[in-house]
Write a protein that binds this DNA or RNA. Structure first.
Lengths: 178, 178, 178, 178
DNA sequence: CATGAATGAGATTTCATTCAT
DNA sequence: GATGAATGAAATCTCATTCAT
């Protein structure tokens, strides 16, 4: 899966034959097909793996004693850091986000992992700290900002990253705070 | 180009042979190749056409007498409405956003059209109305929010659209306002 | 189709890749697929072509002034001669007779051409010359005898063919005559 | 072998992977290869097994006190009944009859078992009851009629089978009788 | 002796592009 | 300038067979 992901990112889905994946992974092509019935199934598996890791990793770095605002921002930063640490994973997800290859079932499974984010926002709304808008409204808003932000700072000078993140956080928090 | 775009959206780039485009467009395959040297060139042309229309159309609906905040929000709404009116165009751009098929040259050309948005934001910053952040920081932020927002409300109930847009605007404005 | 048939007979269906057919036919592989959507469709087309020729050719050699018995035997001989003249065609049909590749539709179409044989036998039954059995009973009987007979004498010494045919006819006629 | 035969009949040789046979037989793939060196060897073994059973079973039902004509017809009926009782076996043989997979050696071995039929016909010829034609001429004739006949009545209404068999016997006997 | 994961050669099919008409 | 039949490289996927366990 790792070999496949890297190739998909580098050459595109289309530009990566299964034979190339097998070679990069050091196996035979048939072996891949023993685990993933089709190329699409392999792609979905990678998607789900990243989507799940995304949350799992992010949750680890959460300090449960912080204030809600701090927790929220930590969460947001965590996501950004996750993708900065895994640029290939980000590029893969970016490419796949709207691809018809990712099935609805996979997307639904991927969403499952996001329960903790729901809770945090709901809690903030109860406390009157976060705007009392529809959950989806807020989630899609945040997702959109993370996506373009990461795409941008990946290409930017490392020295300015902290400053850019601060700017981003200021916009994000003002956007959602009540 | 229209026939091609609709097919690309419906069946995917991969799933749309040039022969299908020719048939849908009511011409021969050779004719397409008289105007676009390759399939990729055709795709880039469509991309650029939409990107340009996006701005052209949006500028039309701008009332130059409004306050800066109103202008800004009108701009934002305009973008949303443009894509709501052209769902195939949106789906196409969404699909192509991170595709290696779109060349850097095309992307750069697409950016050219965005001069008026630059000016508006710069003006707002001078007046102390908009956060004094890097231009790109703000632009990517806005672009990200528009993208996921449109994708979401396209699928949503038409009756709730206005309310969702209002919610979105409240977040967007709070995010960028000084 | 001719190139394909010869290869199918020589190497078997399985043992004949489309690339080999293309090469033998002096075309590109894609060209074959412009006329036959799949390998199976090509095989069905060959089957139908032979089945149709079988009757067309046979009918030509029929003397309409002969007695019914003579006509019947001429018919029978004609079939045999057709296949002796086209051994590859025979081998192909022999191979395909019970193959699941040949669709029911193709078989039904192939049967259409056999109207004249039906008529001849019906006529013979009316005249009390041929056993008053079910039409299918007689047809399958005859078909079975032709099949194994041709397969046999193809391998046999040419000098004894006439004698073998005479023996066969004596059995066939005794079998069906009233 | 039984599991393999049933799958071959149902899905075709081509459509039956060794893994499917192993699963259906409740063993591992390797185990099959301990008994049959290749898939083709397995197929030849099945062929030979059926060919041998065909005669063995048929001989059992023979009444040695009957007249030669009766014996002959009993033989013929016996073959038909054997295949009606083993439709999968028939379908398998039908499919394999002219397949290049069955080796000449296997075919020759299969023929060995047919000694008793030879004798019966030779005896009939000596007694002047059966046409004094070449042995092969008669055998191929009979084989052909059995083949198409069984294929036909397998699909037919069970109630009419006896009547169809009677019709068939009348043709067969008239064909071979002196 | 049984097992079944691993293998990769090879088969079918697609489709961007060309070019004679 | 328009056309679409011809092309063949290249992609996905299958499966007989092996062999370490």
């Amino acid at each position: 899966m790792l070999a496949a992901m890297n190739l998909f990112v580098e050459k595109g889905i289309q530009g990566t034959p299964m034979s190339a994946i097998a070679k990069a992974a050091g196996t035979g092509m048939g072996t891949i097909y023993n685990y993933f019935a089709t190329k699409e199934e392999l792609i979905n598996a990678i998607y789900l793996h990243i989507k799940t890791s995304e949350i799992t990793q992010t949750l680890k770095s959460l300090d449960s004693n912080s204030s809600l605002k701090t927790k929220f921002l930590e969460f947001y930063i965590s996501f950004i850091n996750f993708y900065l640490k895994h640029p290939a994973g980000f590029a893969f997800m970016d490419q796949m986000q709207n691809s018809p290859i990712i099935t609805e079932a996979t997307k639904a499974q991927g969403l499952n992992a996001f329960g903790p984010v729901f809770e945090l926002i709901t809690q903030g709304q109860k406390e009157g700290i976060i705007k009392p808008l529809e959950m989806e409204s807020i989630l899609y808003f945040l997702a959109g900002t993370i996506n373009t932000f990461v795409r941008w700072i990946q290409k930017a000078d490392k020295n300015t990253q902290q400053q850019k993140i601060a700017a981003q956080l200021s916009m994000v928090w003002d956007a959602v705070k009540a």
